[in-house]
Amino acid sequence: MEAAAIPAAHGHGHGHDDHHHHGPPPANRSSRAEPAMLGMLLFIVSEIMIFGAFFTAYFFIRVVQDGAWMPEGNELPVAVAGVNTAILLSSSLTLHWAETSLKAGNRNGFKVGMLTTFLLGLTFLFIQINEYIHIGFAPSDHAQGSIFYGLTGLHGAHVFIGLLLLGFVTLRAFRGHFSADDHRGVEIPGIYWHFVDVMWIVVYTSIYIV
């Protein structure tokens, strides 16, 4: 479903560019908003809500139950996760750079930008998994562990989806798609990626720091 908004509208665009003799009449644009973009934004709204639900669980387990956060002897690797945060954030920057280069017609900058973004995202994911392995408690140990894995895992899943989208874009970038005046297919996954980053800041601050 995630990838849906983009290609659907994309194909639609083609629908009436090439074949207006058969096919539907061009729909009237009753809003300046770009359909695919609007779709992605609304989708992000519901994504925020699903994080909201997990934060509700976090609130109940940490505040309402007011058990210790974390229980004795379960330390969260704040530093490592901090580095990881930096990595993820920098990926947002490289992505932005890729987009600007594309708009400036600098294809190589675009390709390199996309690639680095993708790789940075991948590194984040690996460090996250590595953290799971060495963190020393399991979700089954206590509710705090459950919500820790729950929130970080949920975010991890989103990073994964984001990586898929970026992967496609990178693939197509190297196949010579997109251009200075056709970059919607880059921007829309881009927004999603930026959302994933911002969401991580919230998760990081609330779980590791507070």
């Binding site: 509700t56 109940f60 387990i61 058990g67 979700p139 089954s140 509710a143 459950s146």
Partner: peptide, 15 residues
Amino acid sequence: GFNFFNSAQGGDVLM
């Protein structure tokens, strides 16, 4: 085996 609703492990049933 998560503990979201396992009160014995600090989970919260009403959540």
